[in-house]
Simulated assay, not measured.
Amino acid sequence: MDATPPQIRRATGADTDRVNTLIHASSAYHGEYAPILDGYRLGPDYLERHPTYLAVDEHDTLMGFYSLLVDPATLAEHGFALPELNLLFVDDRLQGKGIGRRLIGHMLDLARSEGITEIRVVSNPPAEPFYRSVGAEKTGTVPPTPPRVTWERPELRFRL
Rank of each mutant, 00 (worst) to 15 (best):
V149H: 04
M1V: 05
M1A: 10
L62G: 10
D109K: 02
N86Y: 14
A76H: 15
T52F: 02
H24K: 11
F80N: 15
R49S: 02
S113Q: 13
V122P: 06
T141S: 11
V70M: 15
T12I: 01
P35H: 07
E128H: 08
W151A: 03
L37T: 09
N124F: 05
R93P: 12
Q7I: 06
D71T: 11
L160D: 06
V134L: 01
F130I: 08
R132D: 03
I119V: 15
L85C: 04
R153G: 08
T117K: 11
L85Q: 03
A11I: 04
R157M: 08
T150V: 12
G96C: 10
Y40I: 11
G64N: 13
E114C: 09
A127C: 09
D91N: 13
D71P: 09
P129D: 03
G135N: 01
V142W: 12
N124C: 09
Q7D: 07
S27W: 08
G140C: 01
I99V: 14
G13S: 03
D15G: 08
G64V: 09
V122N: 12
A14C: 06
L47P: 06
L47R: 07
L85Y: 01
T21E: 14
V121G: 02
M1Q: 08
L82C: 05
G100M: 07
L88I: 15
P5Q: 03
R120W: 00
S123A: 15
A76L: 14
G64Q: 10
A81D: 14
V134C: 02
E137I: 06
P129C: 06
G31Q: 02
I119L: 06
A76Q: 15
L85R: 01
R102E: 14
T145W: 00
P83G: 00
H50G: 02
R132N: 09
R102W: 09
G13H: 05
R18K: 13
R153F: 11
S113G: 05
F130D: 12
R101V: 04
Q95W: 09
A81L: 12
P129N: 05
G79C: 04
A81H: 11
A25I: 03
W151R: 13
G140E: 02
I116S: 01
T117H: 12
P51W: 00
E58M: 15
V90D: 13
H106R: 02
P146I: 01
E77V: 00
G13Y: 02
G43I: 05
Y66T: 06
R41E: 10
A3P: 02
L47Y: 04
T21A: 15
A55R: 05
Y46S: 13
E155N: 07
Y66D: 06
L62V: 11
T141I: 03
E118V: 00
P147V: 07
L103K: 05
P144V: 08
H30F: 00
N20C: 07
P51C: 02
